[in-house]
Design a protein around this nucleic acid. Structure first.
Lengths: 226, 226
DNA sequence: TATTTTGGTTACAATTTGGTGACGGTCTGG
DNA sequence: CCAGACCGTCACCAAATTGTAACCAAAATA
């Protein structure tokens, strides 16, 4: 079975180039040049992977990505976003959009093929969910709702635990406040408050020495370091 | 860099034999004779591979293997299990334990060396880095928001990091100031200020020797050279 | 060489950002 | 119903960051 890939870009030459290369590599390719077409094709025959340009007329890549994630049939299809602006990367990889990977234009075809291969392989293997996270002396047991330092549990509130878990699961990667608000608090609106900061402070206080894992990345967000 | 290998076996002669042979072959070797010691050593300095005997007092090889797999820092280290019982093989290689290879005692040293070589090679080849740009000693990890020189991270501000990222992603191509203002700052207006220049100066200062990658193209803009 | 253009540098004031303490509201168990 | 836990906001502050202007040096141009 050849994997099916949907390529979405408004520039016909770009689509053609990618299409050609993917077919060369043995994939079945379908294409779309605008959002409506993309959604229609993605739904009618769910592809194994989607390559999605951010810059599109009318409905942009962000919108499409979000919409695909909402639909049960397409919510798990890996998406690679193509973007020109580095400023957008944080948003692209964030939980709001949840793209699986990205490439900044211009990119080499070889690079794109590698990423595609990687994502498709991941789907096969089937990511086992991390129930228990360990980072040296710090361990986080998600099903038990228990975080501990040298086997001594912390007394965390529900929100604090969730915040810690989300950060730890994305260990190493910076999470913006917006992302955290969405994932931990499930907020839609991007209200500007110090809520995240305050909870980080409380969390750090309770974690004591373990709080060394919690980095502030000024101007960006927070990061859990191993 | 010599690969580091941790050898765990409760029989001192066996350990010594393996250690000798591994050192002969150019590996750096550390050893442990019980579970607690093994875990401690594995965590304090994560090895590139672990040779683990199943038969150990107190905590057996199965336990150790499982524990290592739970810890984020050691979960991907290849493990070769040594076992006397052919009946255990299924379990050793199964998902529960997830050892990478096994040998049944008694085994030839040559055999062990071959397996080690194979596993280390696999680690090298596969796993293309997540989203990592590398130019010699300079590496840029976008999701982590971390740029470093010989693994030593720079202390860059958010803007400086974005600027470096944009230039590096377009390596070789000149970027005009307008272009940079758009892609890094998300400015629409094309004001004529020295903003970009100032940031380039700060960036160069912080990058030190790595700033050789940052070229000025008079009359046009800036360019990242490999 | 004189002039102009361009980029580097310095300094600084304005702004942004994150940490912190405090407060009132809400919820929960008793 | 009440005490206490928990949570979201807010105001304030120190520190980091940033944009700009003024000035200077080098390169290009005439």
């Amino acid at each position: 079975m050849k994997p099916r890939i949907l390529v979405v870009d408004d520039e016909p030459e770009a689509v053609e180039l990618i299409e050609f290369n993917l077919k060369q590599s043995g994939y079945t390719v379908s294409t779309a040049t605008d959002g409506a077409e993309a959604l229609k094709k993605a739904r009618s025959q769910v592809p194994d992977l989607i390559v999605l340009d951010v810059m599109l007329p009318e409905m942009d890549g962000f919108e499409i990505c979000k919409t695909l994630r909402l639909d049960a049939s397409t919510s798990r299809v890996p998406i690679i976003m193509l973007t020109a602006k580095a400023a957008e990367i944080d948003r692209v990889l964030g939980l709001e959009l949840g793209a699986d990977d990205y490439l900044t234009k211009p990119f080499s075809t070889r690079e794109l093929l590698l990423r595609i291969k990687k994502l498709l392989a991941r789907g096969q293997a089937g990511e086992l969910p991390e129930n228990l996270l360990r980072f040296g002396d710090l361990s986080i047991d998600t099903p038990r709702h228990l975080a501990s330092w040298r086997e001594k549990p912390f007394d965390l509130t529900a929100t604090e635990f969730k915040l810690l878990t989300v950060l730890a699961q994305r260990a190493g990667r910076v999470q913006s406040r917006d992302q955290l608000l969405r994932d931990v608090w499930e907020y839609d609106s991007l209200i500007d408050t110090r809520t995240v900061d305050t909870h980080m402070r409380r969390l750090r206080e309770k974690l004591g020495p373990a709080s060394k894992h919690l980095d502030t990345v000024r101007g960006v967000g927070y990061r859990f370091v191993e």
